[in-house]
Computed example of a mutant assay.
Amino acid sequence: MALTPLSEDSWLPSLTLPQLLLAAYTVLTIIALVYAASTSSAAFGAYNSQWDGAGELRTVAADAGANVTVGTNVSQYPTSDTDTTVAVVLSPAEPYSSSERARIAEFVRSGGTLVVAEDYRPEGNALLAAVGADARFDGRPVYDNRNYYRNSSLPEATPAGDYPETAGVDTVVLNYGTTVRAGNATTLVNTSEYAYLDTNGNGELDGEEQLASRPVVTSEPVGDGRVIAVSDPSIFVNAMLERGDNRRFVRNLVASHGDALLDYSHASSVPPVAAAVLAVQRSDALLLLCGVVLVGALLAYDRRLDEHLRDRLREYSGGDPDPNLSRDGVEKYLRASHPDWETAQVERVTEAIIKQRAERQRND
Protein backbone atom coordinates (compact mmCIF):
# COMPACT_ATOMS: atom_id res chain seq x y z
CA MET A 1 0.00 0.00 0.00
CA ALA A 2 1.44 3.41 -1.00
CA LEU A 3 1.91 6.03 1.68
CA THR A 4 -0.11 9.22 1.17
CA PRO A 5 1.97 12.42 0.78
CA LEU A 6 2.00 14.68 3.83
CA SER A 7 0.20 17.43 1.92
CA GLU A 8 -0.74 18.45 -1.58
CA ASP A 9 2.41 20.57 -1.79
CA SER A 10 4.77 18.04 -0.22
CA TRP A 11 7.99 17.34 -2.10
CA LEU A 12 8.32 13.89 -0.49
CA PRO A 13 7.70 10.99 -2.87
CA SER A 14 5.08 8.36 -2.16
CA LEU A 15 6.84 5.28 -0.74
CA THR A 16 5.70 1.77 -0.01
CA LEU A 17 6.43 0.35 3.44
CA PRO A 18 9.27 -1.92 2.14
CA GLN A 19 10.81 1.06 0.35
CA LEU A 20 10.62 3.14 3.53
CA LEU A 21 12.27 0.36 5.56
CA LEU A 22 15.01 -0.01 2.95
CA ALA A 23 15.64 3.74 3.00
CA ALA A 24 15.89 3.75 6.81
CA TYR A 25 18.28 0.76 6.73
CA THR A 26 20.42 2.50 4.10
CA VAL A 27 20.65 5.68 6.18
CA LEU A 28 21.63 3.74 9.32
CA THR A 29 24.25 1.79 7.36
CA ILE A 30 25.79 4.99 5.98
CA ILE A 31 25.91 6.52 9.48
CA ALA A 32 27.61 3.39 10.84
CA LEU A 33 30.18 3.36 8.02
CA VAL A 34 31.00 7.06 8.48
CA TYR A 35 31.40 6.55 12.25
CA ALA A 36 33.65 3.52 11.71
CA ALA A 37 35.77 5.45 9.20
CA SER A 38 36.21 8.40 11.55
CA THR A 39 37.15 6.54 14.75
CA SER A 40 39.89 4.14 15.78
CA SER A 41 40.25 1.23 18.19
CA ALA A 42 44.06 1.31 18.23
CA ALA A 43 45.80 1.68 21.58
CA PHE A 44 47.06 5.26 22.14
CA GLY A 45 45.07 6.32 19.06
CA ALA A 46 44.25 10.02 18.79
CA TYR A 47 40.74 9.13 17.55
CA ASN A 48 40.07 6.30 20.00
CA SER A 49 37.59 7.34 22.70
CA GLN A 50 37.79 4.00 24.53
CA TRP A 51 39.75 3.52 27.74
CA ASP A 52 43.02 2.67 25.98
CA GLY A 53 42.82 5.46 23.39
CA ALA A 54 44.33 8.93 23.58
CA GLY A 55 41.40 10.90 22.18
CA GLU A 56 41.21 12.92 25.39
CA LEU A 57 44.85 13.99 24.99
CA ARG A 58 43.83 16.47 22.30
CA THR A 59 41.33 18.02 24.72
CA VAL A 60 43.89 18.25 27.52
CA ALA A 61 46.41 19.95 25.23
CA ALA A 62 43.79 22.38 23.90
CA ASP A 63 42.65 23.21 27.44
CA ALA A 64 46.26 24.03 28.26
CA GLY A 65 46.11 26.74 25.60
CA ALA A 66 47.98 24.94 22.82
CA ASN A 67 47.09 24.80 19.15
CA VAL A 68 46.86 21.02 18.64
CA THR A 69 47.95 19.22 15.47
CA VAL A 70 47.68 15.47 14.88
CA GLY A 71 50.79 14.78 12.83
CA THR A 72 50.88 11.99 10.26
CA ASN A 73 54.22 12.95 8.70
CA VAL A 74 57.54 14.01 10.17
CA SER A 75 57.56 16.93 7.73
CA GLN A 76 55.06 18.59 10.08
CA TYR A 77 57.79 19.21 12.65
CA PRO A 78 58.44 22.96 12.43
CA THR A 79 61.79 24.27 11.24
CA SER A 80 61.42 27.78 12.67
CA ASP A 81 60.08 29.20 15.93
CA THR A 82 60.46 25.72 17.36
CA ASP A 83 60.74 26.97 20.94
CA THR A 84 56.95 27.40 21.04
CA THR A 85 56.24 23.79 20.07
CA VAL A 86 56.07 20.58 22.09
CA ALA A 87 55.96 17.30 20.15
CA VAL A 88 54.58 14.15 21.81
CA VAL A 89 55.51 10.65 20.61
CA LEU A 90 53.56 7.75 22.15
CA SER A 91 55.18 4.34 21.72
CA PRO A 92 55.98 4.40 17.99
CA ALA A 93 55.27 1.07 16.32
CA GLU A 94 57.74 1.53 13.47
CA PRO A 95 61.31 2.89 13.37
CA TYR A 96 62.01 6.36 12.02
CA SER A 97 64.18 6.58 8.91
CA SER A 98 67.55 8.34 9.03
CA SER A 99 66.13 11.44 7.33
CA GLU A 100 63.17 11.50 9.72
CA ARG A 101 65.44 11.19 12.74
CA ALA A 102 67.54 14.05 11.39
CA ARG A 103 64.44 16.23 11.02
CA ILE A 104 63.34 15.58 14.61
CA ALA A 105 66.89 16.08 15.93
CA GLU A 106 67.06 19.46 14.19
CA PHE A 107 63.69 20.37 15.72
CA VAL A 108 65.06 19.68 19.21
CA ARG A 109 68.45 21.33 18.68
CA SER A 110 66.81 24.50 17.41
CA GLY A 111 64.65 24.88 20.52
CA GLY A 112 61.76 22.40 20.36
CA THR A 113 60.57 20.20 23.21
CA LEU A 114 60.23 16.49 22.47
CA VAL A 115 58.27 14.18 24.79
CA VAL A 116 58.92 10.48 24.16
CA ALA A 117 56.69 8.04 26.05
CA GLU A 118 57.68 4.37 25.79
CA ASP A 119 57.81 1.19 27.83
CA TYR A 120 58.83 -1.97 25.96
CA ARG A 121 59.22 -1.26 22.23
CA PRO A 122 62.75 -0.49 20.96
CA GLU A 123 61.77 2.49 18.80
CA GLY A 124 61.58 4.83 21.79
CA ASN A 125 65.22 4.32 22.73
CA ALA A 126 66.26 4.57 19.08
CA LEU A 127 64.58 7.95 18.85
CA LEU A 128 66.18 9.17 22.08
CA ALA A 129 69.60 8.17 20.77
CA ALA A 130 68.94 9.80 17.39
CA VAL A 131 68.15 13.20 18.88
CA GLY A 132 71.17 13.09 21.21
CA ALA A 133 69.40 12.41 24.53
CA ASP A 134 71.20 10.53 27.29
CA ALA A 135 68.14 8.88 28.92
CA ARG A 136 67.04 5.35 27.96
CA PHE A 137 63.98 3.24 28.81
CA ASP A 138 64.83 0.16 30.88
CA GLY A 139 62.22 -2.12 29.27
CA ARG A 140 61.51 -4.25 32.33
CA PRO A 141 58.13 -3.85 34.09
CA VAL A 142 58.22 -1.98 37.39
CA TYR A 143 56.17 -3.08 40.39
CA ASP A 144 55.59 -1.59 43.82
CA ASN A 145 54.02 -3.76 46.53
CA ARG A 146 53.41 -0.86 48.90
CA ASN A 147 52.60 2.27 46.89
CA TYR A 148 50.14 1.48 44.14
CA TYR A 149 46.69 2.38 42.79
CA ARG A 150 44.88 -0.99 42.66
CA ASN A 151 47.68 -3.51 42.50
CA SER A 152 51.46 -3.56 42.36
CA SER A 153 51.49 -3.28 38.56
CA LEU A 154 50.03 0.22 38.85
CA PRO A 155 52.71 1.87 41.01
CA GLU A 156 52.34 5.43 42.25
CA ALA A 157 55.32 7.68 41.54
CA THR A 158 56.00 11.09 43.06
CA PRO A 159 57.79 14.28 41.97
CA ALA A 160 61.52 14.36 42.62
CA GLY A 161 61.51 18.12 43.18
CA ASP A 162 59.84 21.40 42.31
CA TYR A 163 59.63 21.57 38.53
CA PRO A 164 57.11 23.21 36.18
CA GLU A 165 56.13 19.76 34.89
CA THR A 166 55.18 18.58 38.37
CA ALA A 167 53.48 21.73 39.69
CA GLY A 168 50.32 20.68 41.53
CA VAL A 169 51.17 16.99 41.07
CA ASP A 170 51.31 14.67 44.07
CA THR A 171 51.20 11.28 42.37
CA VAL A 172 51.65 9.93 38.85
CA VAL A 173 50.09 6.49 38.35
CA LEU A 174 51.74 4.05 35.92
CA ASN A 175 50.05 1.08 34.25
CA TYR A 176 52.50 -1.78 33.59
CA GLY A 177 55.19 0.78 32.85
CA THR A 178 58.95 0.59 33.10
CA THR A 179 61.60 3.01 34.36
CA VAL A 180 64.17 5.36 32.83
CA ARG A 181 67.92 4.98 33.06
CA ALA A 182 68.51 8.69 33.49
CA GLY A 183 72.22 9.01 32.74
CA ASN A 184 72.90 12.76 32.83
CA ALA A 185 69.21 13.66 32.60
CA THR A 186 67.35 15.26 35.49
CA THR A 187 64.78 13.08 37.25
CA LEU A 188 61.37 14.77 37.43
CA VAL A 189 59.31 11.86 38.81
CA ASN A 190 60.45 8.66 40.49
CA THR A 191 59.00 5.58 42.14
CA SER A 192 59.00 4.93 45.84
CA GLU A 193 61.89 3.09 47.44
CA TYR A 194 59.75 -0.06 47.48
CA ALA A 195 59.64 -0.44 43.70
CA TYR A 196 61.46 -3.21 41.85
CA LEU A 197 62.09 -4.25 38.25
CA ASP A 198 60.60 -7.64 37.40
CA THR A 199 63.51 -9.21 35.53
CA ASN A 200 62.11 -12.74 35.18
CA GLY A 201 58.53 -11.68 34.40
CA ASN A 202 56.76 -13.55 37.22
CA GLY A 203 55.37 -10.41 38.88
CA GLU A 204 57.05 -11.24 42.17
CA LEU A 205 60.05 -9.84 44.04
CA ASP A 206 62.64 -12.59 44.02
CA GLY A 207 66.16 -13.54 43.03
CA GLU A 208 68.43 -10.55 42.50
CA GLU A 209 65.56 -8.07 42.04
CA GLN A 210 66.09 -5.17 44.40
CA LEU A 211 63.90 -2.53 45.99
CA ALA A 212 64.92 1.00 45.04
CA SER A 213 63.55 4.38 43.98
CA ARG A 214 63.96 4.73 40.20
CA PRO A 215 63.21 7.51 37.67
CA VAL A 216 60.09 7.25 35.56
CA VAL A 217 60.19 10.76 34.00
CA THR A 218 63.38 12.63 33.09
CA SER A 219 64.25 15.88 31.36
CA GLU A 220 67.45 17.01 29.70
CA PRO A 221 68.63 19.82 27.44
CA VAL A 222 69.69 18.94 23.90
CA GLY A 223 71.03 21.87 21.92
CA ASP A 224 68.61 24.74 22.46
CA GLY A 225 65.73 22.33 23.07
CA ARG A 226 64.71 19.72 25.58
CA VAL A 227 63.87 16.01 25.65
CA ILE A 228 61.47 14.54 28.21
CA ALA A 229 61.35 10.75 28.61
CA VAL A 230 58.22 9.20 30.15
CA SER A 231 58.49 5.50 30.93
CA ASP A 232 54.82 4.66 30.40
CA PRO A 233 52.74 5.83 27.41
CA SER A 234 49.65 4.61 29.26
CA ILE A 235 49.79 7.78 31.37
CA PHE A 236 48.37 9.60 28.33
CA VAL A 237 45.39 7.29 27.59
CA ASN A 238 41.82 8.24 28.42
CA ALA A 239 41.33 6.03 31.47
CA MET A 240 44.72 6.73 33.05
CA LEU A 241 44.31 10.50 32.75
CA GLU A 242 41.79 10.15 35.58
CA ARG A 243 44.22 8.28 37.88
CA GLY A 244 46.23 10.20 40.45
CA ASP A 245 47.33 13.56 39.05
CA ASN A 246 48.08 12.25 35.57
CA ARG A 247 45.82 14.79 33.86
CA ARG A 248 47.55 17.68 35.62
CA PHE A 249 50.97 16.26 34.80
CA VAL A 250 50.15 15.86 31.08
CA ARG A 251 48.67 19.36 31.01
CA ASN A 252 51.87 20.73 32.55
CA LEU A 253 53.95 19.16 29.78
CA VAL A 254 52.06 21.25 27.23
CA ALA A 255 51.16 24.34 29.24
CA SER A 256 54.16 26.53 28.37
CA HIS A 257 53.87 25.94 24.62
CA GLY A 258 51.69 27.61 22.02
CA ASP A 259 51.65 24.57 19.73
CA ALA A 260 51.34 20.83 20.44
CA LEU A 261 52.23 18.31 17.74
CA LEU A 262 50.94 14.80 18.46
CA ASP A 263 53.25 12.67 16.32
CA TYR A 264 51.34 9.68 14.91
CA SER A 265 53.56 9.31 11.86
CA HIS A 266 54.88 5.96 13.10
CA ALA A 267 52.03 4.83 15.33
CA SER A 268 48.74 3.12 14.56
CA SER A 269 46.97 4.29 11.42
CA VAL A 270 44.67 7.31 11.51
CA PRO A 271 41.02 6.58 10.51
CA PRO A 272 40.27 7.29 6.80
CA VAL A 273 37.89 10.22 7.39
CA ALA A 274 40.26 11.83 9.89
CA ALA A 275 43.21 11.25 7.54
CA ALA A 276 41.31 12.93 4.70
CA VAL A 277 40.48 15.94 6.86
CA LEU A 278 44.08 16.26 8.01
CA ALA A 279 45.32 16.01 4.41
CA VAL A 280 42.97 18.79 3.31
CA GLN A 281 44.07 20.98 6.21
CA ARG A 282 47.72 20.58 5.21
CA SER A 283 47.24 21.17 1.47
CA ASP A 284 46.06 24.45 -0.04
CA ALA A 285 45.50 22.67 -3.37
CA LEU A 286 43.20 20.06 -1.81
CA LEU A 287 41.38 22.77 0.12
CA LEU A 288 40.79 24.69 -3.11
CA LEU A 289 39.62 21.52 -4.89
CA CYS A 290 37.12 20.78 -2.11
CA GLY A 291 35.83 24.34 -2.36
CA VAL A 292 35.35 24.04 -6.12
CA VAL A 293 33.53 20.70 -5.74
CA LEU A 294 31.27 22.14 -3.04
CA VAL A 295 30.37 25.19 -5.11
CA GLY A 296 29.69 22.96 -8.13
CA ALA A 297 27.43 20.73 -6.07
CA LEU A 298 25.50 23.74 -4.77
CA LEU A 299 25.04 25.09 -8.30
CA ALA A 300 23.86 21.69 -9.53
CA TYR A 301 21.42 21.46 -6.63
CA ASP A 302 20.16 24.99 -7.33
CA ARG A 303 19.53 24.07 -10.97
CA ARG A 304 17.63 20.93 -10.02
CA LEU A 305 15.60 22.97 -7.55
CA ASP A 306 14.67 25.41 -10.32
CA GLU A 307 13.62 22.54 -12.57
CA HIS A 308 11.52 21.07 -9.78
CA LEU A 309 9.76 24.38 -9.18
CA ARG A 310 9.02 24.78 -12.88
CA ASP A 311 7.62 21.24 -13.03
CA ARG A 312 5.45 21.96 -10.02
CA LEU A 313 4.17 25.14 -11.63
CA ARG A 314 3.25 23.33 -14.83
CA GLU A 315 1.56 20.62 -12.77
CA TYR A 316 -0.71 23.16 -11.08
CA SER A 317 -1.35 25.61 -13.90
CA GLY A 318 -1.10 23.42 -16.95
CA GLY A 319 1.50 25.76 -18.46
CA ASP A 320 3.64 28.82 -17.88
CA PRO A 321 2.19 32.33 -17.32
CA ASP A 322 2.51 35.01 -19.99
CA PRO A 323 6.27 35.62 -20.47
CA ASN A 324 5.59 39.36 -20.75
CA LEU A 325 4.14 39.64 -17.26
CA SER A 326 6.09 41.64 -14.66
CA ARG A 327 7.00 40.14 -11.30
CA ASP A 328 3.83 41.59 -9.77
CA GLY A 329 1.86 40.26 -12.73
CA VAL A 330 3.24 36.76 -12.20
CA GLU A 331 2.32 36.90 -8.54
CA LYS A 332 -1.24 38.04 -9.35
CA TYR A 333 -1.53 35.28 -11.95
CA LEU A 334 -0.45 32.65 -9.45
CA ARG A 335 -2.72 33.93 -6.69
CA ALA A 336 -5.68 33.93 -9.07
CA SER A 337 -4.88 30.45 -10.38
CA HIS A 338 -4.12 28.97 -6.96
CA PRO A 339 -5.97 30.81 -4.17
CA ASP A 340 -5.10 27.97 -1.78
CA TRP A 341 -1.33 28.61 -2.00
CA GLU A 342 0.50 30.20 0.90
CA THR A 343 2.33 33.51 0.35
CA ALA A 344 5.72 31.84 0.71
CA GLN A 345 4.88 29.29 -1.98
CA VAL A 346 3.68 31.99 -4.36
CA GLU A 347 6.88 33.97 -3.84
CA ARG A 348 9.04 30.87 -4.32
CA VAL A 349 7.40 29.88 -7.59
CA THR A 350 7.43 33.51 -8.80
CA GLU A 351 11.17 33.69 -8.18
CA ALA A 352 11.71 30.45 -10.10
CA ILE A 353 9.72 31.77 -13.08
CA ILE A 354 11.61 35.08 -13.14
CA LYS A 355 14.93 33.27 -12.91
CA GLN A 356 13.92 30.87 -15.69
CA ARG A 357 12.93 33.82 -17.87
CA ALA A 358 16.34 35.48 -17.31
CA GLU A 359 18.14 32.26 -18.24
CA ARG A 360 16.14 31.92 -21.45
CA GLN A 361 16.99 35.49 -22.40
CA ARG A 362 20.70 34.85 -21.86
CA ASN A 363 20.53 31.67 -23.94
CA ASP A 364 18.77 33.53 -26.73
Rank of each mutant, 00 (worst) to 15 (best):
Q345Y: 11
A185C: 07
D63I: 06
D328Y: 08
L28T: 09
V295E: 08
N48C: 06
S75D: 13
G132K: 09
I104D: 00
A126T: 06
R348N: 05
R136G: 06
S97Y: 10
R282Q: 09
A64W: 12
V34W: 10
E123L: 05
E94D: 15
L309Y: 06
Y176L: 12
N324E: 13
T179R: 02
S268T: 09
S283P: 02
T178Y: 10
A61T: 08
D198L: 00
V60L: 10
Q281N: 14
A54F: 06
I354K: 10
L188I: 05
S219E: 01
E331V: 09
A32N: 13
R248L: 12
R226T: 11
Y316H: 15
E209S: 05
I31P: 03
A255P: 15
V169G: 02
A274Q: 12
S153G: 11
E94Q: 14
L253C: 07
L262W: 00
V349L: 07
S265Y: 05
G183H: 14
V108N: 03
V230L: 01
A229Y: 04
E359L: 13
P159V: 10
V89Y: 02
T187D: 07
R140P: 09
T39W: 00
T16H: 06
R214L: 13
L309W: 04
S213K: 07
Y194T: 04
A358H: 11
I235D: 03
S41V: 04
T199V: 07
R348Y: 03
D306N: 14
N200H: 05
D83I: 05
L174Y: 08
V74H: 00
D162Y: 02
V172F: 05
C290Q: 12
T4D: 12
S41A: 14
I31E: 13
D328V: 09
L325A: 14
D119F: 05
P339G: 09
V270P: 04
Y176G: 07
A336W: 03
